[in-house]
Amino acid sequence: MILDVGSAELVDAAGTICQQVRSAGVSPSVVLGVLNGGRVPAEMLARELGSECRCVLHRRKTTGRVKSMAVSAVNRFPVFVGNVARVLEDRALRILSSASTETLQLRRELVDKLSWVQWYDLADKTPVLIVDDAVDSGRTVGEIVLALEHLGVSRSSMRIACVTVTRPDPVVDVDFFYKREVLCRFPWSDDAKSGELDGK
């Protein structure tokens, strides 16, 4: 199943996640969005929670190998063909992920992108809420967690939120989410039709 997420669903997702965050007694000072997909949800959550919003770009190489399947299908065929391509893409990524013996690694380039942490007053700016649109294997967010730990942020002061957790067993625990084991097509997804999110 593919859930098409538009403006109304994003507002609902942000409201649901904010309620979970507040119920857990968490008051994040910083909401860190994972670009590109985590930017809009992070901005919405930061606004609602009264937190500062920052973003970081981090893409793993595995993701880029398979991404073109759904993109090429959606522009030439009916939506259901794009949906089939998206499901096949997810299965291919699962196979690549499960076949990989790669462990979470501290990536120097990611530490450099997060260098603002080194001069940021973390004593007054925790906890940090890391936000992505979707968590699949969890490796992208996991590597961000490792980089933040390397820069002095304690794991206990980090929380992870996303719109959807697409798999039952990501390598990181997601604290707050809107959907579980559901593939979503966001307005910024490569296979989305243009104009699905007003002003974006």
Rank of each mutant, 00 (worst) to 15 (best):
82 G>Y: 01
123 A>R: 13
82 G>W: 01
150 H>N: 10
86 R>W: 00
76 R>I: 03
163 V>R: 09
51 S>A: 15
50 G>I: 04
162 C>S: 15
127 P>K: 05
172 V>I: 13
35 L>F: 09
150 H>W: 09
85 A>H: 05
13 A>E: 08
173 D>V: 10
161 A>M: 12
115 S>K: 07
17 I>V: 15
182 V>R: 14
12 D>R: 14
89 E>A: 02
177 F>R: 12
16 T>W: 05
85 A>M: 10
193 K>H: 04
168 P>L: 02
64 G>E: 14
167 R>G: 00
86 R>V: 02
178 Y>A: 08
199 G>S: 11
200 K>H: 12
130 I>G: 03
12 D>W: 06
99 A>E: 14
57 L>E: 13
140 T>C: 04
74 V>F: 05
165 V>D: 07
36 N>S: 14
138 G>I: 10
116 W>A: 00
6 G>T: 15
102 E>C: 12
18 C>P: 02
108 R>G: 03
30 V>T: 12
125 K>H: 15
139 R>P: 03
35 L>A: 15
14 A>G: 01
46 A>D: 10
47 R>C: 03
61 K>Y: 13
131 V>W: 14
170 P>R: 01
23 S>I: 00
134 A>L: 13
132 D>W: 11
123 A>G: 15
122 L>D: 01
25 G>K: 05
182 V>L: 08
152 G>N: 07
11 V>S: 11
120 Y>S: 13
190 D>H: 06
34 V>D: 04
124 D>W: 10
42 A>W: 09
162 C>R: 09
102 E>I: 13
58 H>V: 09
150 H>P: 00
38 G>F: 12
190 D>G: 13
148 L>G: 03
14 A>P: 00
165 V>G: 04
116 W>N: 00
82 G>P: 02
183 L>M: 15
174 V>T: 05
100 S>M: 11
25 G>C: 04
64 G>F: 06
134 A>N: 09
128 V>N: 03
73 A>G: 05
124 D>E: 15
101 T>C: 12
2 I>V: 15
106 L>T: 05
109 E>H: 08
12 D>N: 11
23 S>H: 03
25 G>V: 05
29 S>A: 12
164 T>L: 03
111 V>K: 02
134 A>P: 01
175 D>M: 03
99 A>C: 15
117 V>F: 03
52 E>L: 15
173 D>Q: 09
117 V>E: 00
70 A>S: 14
187 P>M: 07
39 R>D: 14
198 D>T: 10
192 A>Y: 01
78 P>H: 12
112 D>H: 06
53 C>R: 04
8 A>Q: 14
121 D>K: 04
199 G>M: 04
118 Q>W: 02
